[in-house]
């Protein structure tokens, strides 16, 4: 299993790198204490807090303490909400997961068939129409498409709730807005992967033994084309979580994205830091997961491990 080991090592290096980068970003302003105190604190309060949090120690000592705390999964306490940061963020995670899930569903449900159709019907009007659609999806700012949907479906037609998280219906528009860009990358990737596979000999060979074109695609091409698509599917989950910052703000969806923006406004930076770390960890784990998924889909790799 040397392959798997090196993947794990790479993931660990990435995690360590992310922790380091976030640590130094938090100190970019000079005094991280100022990022953590609620508005209106006095100079003495700030000084006391600086000492209590150890921000008056040398940078390297702070760095070591930071890594140690995180290793013990101690994410700290919010000085604004007077509660453990872990709890504050964890409470919001299910909402973002639901949103990301919905967006992924939209992206896969539309992107994969669109990409497949573009490859199979290459050079027809259908491909051109879908290519336009995909390009639009890729260039749409999520907050604009979100607002347009609110205007049309929420305000004008009154079909869907314009904000909040009351029921499944309120998940529809945010999911579509968030999923659009991901849908485009799925479609592009699927198209390329399927085109690659369609040119292979086994397609001709399959037809030569009496399979229809459609059967060759279903039975052989799709599974082969899935391999490269799986990688970006995993990476896109990270992008969806990050994109949630904007979409949740547009739709007042109470996930970690909205929490991040609210916490910046209330100067609760420990919460923001935790959210960034969380999303990055998810991103790195999804990457690792994609590598493992290869093995399930591709027997050639299964044996190598």
């Amino acid at each position: 299993m040397p392959e798997l080991k090196s993947r794990l090592l790479q993931a660990l290096i990435a995690i360590f790198g992310v922790l380091t980068i976030v640590f130094f970003i938090m100190r970019l302003s000079g005094d991280p204490t100022l990022l953590l105190v609620p508005d209106g604190a006095t100079a003495e309060q700030i000084a006391a807090l600086r000492h209590a949090l150890g921000f008056d120690r040398p940078l390297l000592v702070q760095y070591g303490a930071y890594l140690l705390d995180l290793a013990r999964l101690d994410l700290g306490e919010s000085l604004v909400q007077h509660a453990p940061v872990a709890g504050i963020v964890a409470e919001r995670i299910p909402y973002t997961m639901a949103l990301a899930g919905g967006a992924l569903l939209v992206a896969l449900g539309v992107g994969l068939p669109a990409g497949l159709a573009m490859a199979v019907w290459r050079g027809t009007w259908l491909e051109r129409a879908l290519a336009g659609f995909v390009l639009a999806g890729q260039s749409l700012p999520t907050f604009w498409s979100g607002l347009l949907m609110i205007l049309f479906f929420g305000v004008y037609l009154g079909w869907l709730p314009t904000s909040g998280s009351d029921d499944l219906a309120s998940l529809v528009m945010p999911s579509v807005a968030l999923g659009a860009i991901t849908m485009s990358s799925f479609a592009r990737m699927t198209r390329i992967a399927v085109l690659d596979e369609l040119s292979r000999d086994y397609v001709a060979a399959g037809r030569a033994r009496g399979l229809s074109y459609g059967a060759v695609i279903l039975r052989h091409v799709l599974r082969n084309a899935a391999i490269p698509v799986v990688t970006i599917a995993a990476l896109e989950v990270g992008n969806l979580l990050a994109g949630a910052v904007i979409v949740e703000t547009v739709f007042a969806w109470p996930g970690i994205g909205q929490l991040a923006i609210q916490s910046i406004a209330s100067r609760d930076f420990l919460v923001v830091q935790t959210i960034v770390l969380f999303v990055s960890m998810v991103y790195i784990s999804m990457n690792l997961l994609a590598d493992l998924a290869y093995g399930v889909i591709d027997p050639r790799i299964r044996r190598d491990r």
Partner: peptide, 22 residues
């Protein structure tokens, strides 16, 4: 299509790429 495989069949130059790897 019904004839292919049953009445007339074909083999290819590169057997490894003429088989679906998966």
């Amino acid at each position: 299509r019904d004839l292919r495989g049953r009445q007339i069949a074909m083999i290819f130059q590169e057997p490894q790429s003429a088989l679906d790897p998966l």
